[in-house]
Design a protein around this nucleic acid. Structure first.
Lengths: 207, 207
DNA sequence: ACCTGAACACCGTTCAAGT
DNA sequence: ACCTGAACACCGTTCAAGT
């Protein structure tokens, strides 16, 4: 995880890992079946860092806190997104986390079907936001630099709306893409709240 | 693109590409600066396949069609998600597409700020949904198989909510994860519509 | 202009061998 | 139980050389 955080996923090779541990490459294989197992383990380690919501408490507060926690964790380990795409071997922390999320929704009054909807929606937003953030340079100044570079090379009259949004909004002093997260999260939670009243019978709503 | 579609991103090597073109590996470098340029080009080729929304038309219909188009394209080329995470060199088709999306929102009455919000939200959902879908096996039957395998190995009493959702819903005959897409998309577009009336001054609303 | 062979510095992993 | 050396079949890419 240190290797991936510091130098990206490509830098995490079995050989580099062994070097980090002051061993020869082949020693790693005595503790782990192969690289796949390491990648599966990394994903689970990341999920373990996300704050689990607590079933039984107010679902909206719990989910909001869980989403902010997840976003901050994914921001620290952006390489995990690329891994999630290919892993089909969820570890214990991953399943425990999923169970907590599902439980919080169910006990918050969501029917099974609405829970499935909500789950797919919220996690899609979470992962997708992380994908977009990962595509940006780490530092806010670097984003501006990149954008200005791009604008300079662009045939401006061909993309008027793109240019407007970039120049008049994104490149303005106070703008930070990270702030967009709250808008979308609120909209989603609002929408779920509205559908909670109208959709399906569900379990009686707690609290 | 054929190589990536058929055998995954890992199978797309410079050497395999050359083999496919009936050339020796080094011949590729005469047409392309290096592998990075190929990956940038692939991302742009995928964006070119997504149906651009048409600025000036009813924004909700346009965005809905664009999102369904994008989902189907990303479903055909799931490897592109992993690429988007690392590319910072948008190609012409990518920028043209972004411009069309932004223009459709702006001319639909969205203020610049609300456009930025909407854009981040919609695309996050799109990419995140694709990430989740990519993490599932391609065939619906295979999903069931995988889920049943997982359930068999699971300490059921430890994850009651996870088990409930899986057994009582996901493994039921009619269930298809792909159907979850419409629920989330509608919720998001509904939410944006509601905020369109209340938020910011914006340009006068067309149509 | 387009292609190639040989070479370099890397990968993940197997296998047989050490302590 | 834990580690290692040598080897195999791969990577992306440089460089000099061919037509």
């Amino acid at each position: 995880m240190e290797l991936a955080d510091e130098q990206g996923l490509a830098a995490l090779t079995m050989r580099a890992l062994a070097r980090r541990l002051d061993r020869k490459p082949m020693a790693v294989y005595h503790h782990v079946r192969g690289k796949e197992e390491i990648l599966d383990g990394l994903v689970d380690m990341v999920f373990a860092q996300i704050q689990d919501p607590r079933p039984g408490r107010e679902w909206r507060e719990e989910m909001s806190a869980r989403c902010h926690s997840a976003r901050s964790v994914l921001g620290k380990h952006p390489w995990v997104i690329a891994l999630m795409e290919s892993r089909t071997n969820p570890g214990p922390a991953t399943i425990k986390h999923h169970d907590a999320v599902i439980g919080t929704l169910r006990q918050g009054g969501f029917s099974v079907a609405l829970t499935a909807h909500a789950y797919a929606l919220i996690d899609s937003y979470l992962y997708g936001f992380a994908v977009q953030e990962a595509g940006l340079p780490g530092e806010a100044d670097a984003v501006d630099e990149l954008a200005e570079e791009l604008m300079a090379a662009l045939p401006v009259e061909q993309y008027p709306h793109f240019v407007e949004l970039t120049v008049e909004h994104v490149l303005q002093p106070g703008y930070d893409f990270a702030d967009e997260f709250d808008f979308g999260l609120s909209l989603i939670l609002d929408g779920l709240d509205a559908r909670l009243g109208t959709l399906g019978p569900g379990t009686p709503r707690k609290r």
